[in-house]
């Protein structure tokens, strides 16, 4: 084969997919982390309130 076939659009698509997927995964880790932290805060404040309300 003398001429190199032009497949750069496939290449671009490949790299975009890679970065987007990894980005989404990292984002999902971040969001889950934030949600859990909020849960911990809420639950801890609930726990702190509980003994008071009982008394």
């Amino acid at each position: 084969m003398d001429t190199i076939p032009d497949t750069s659009s496939y290449m671009t698509a490949g790299f975009i997919v890679t970065f987007v997927t990894m980005g989404i995964y990292v984002l999902s880790l971040y969001i889950r982390n934030q949600n859990l932290k909020r849960d911990v805060d809420t639950l801890e404040s609930l726990q702190a309130e509980k003994p008071k309300s009982k008394k």
């Binding site: 084969m1 190199i4 076939p5 032009d6 497949t7 750069s8 496939y10 290449m11 490949g14 790299f15 890679t18």
Partner: peptide, 14 residues
């Protein structure tokens, strides 16, 4: 650049 498949071969590394 790979001669047979062209640019798309760069995806191969990932």
């Amino acid at each position: 650049t790979e001669l047979v498949m062209g640019q798309v071969q760069r995806v191969f590394y990932f």
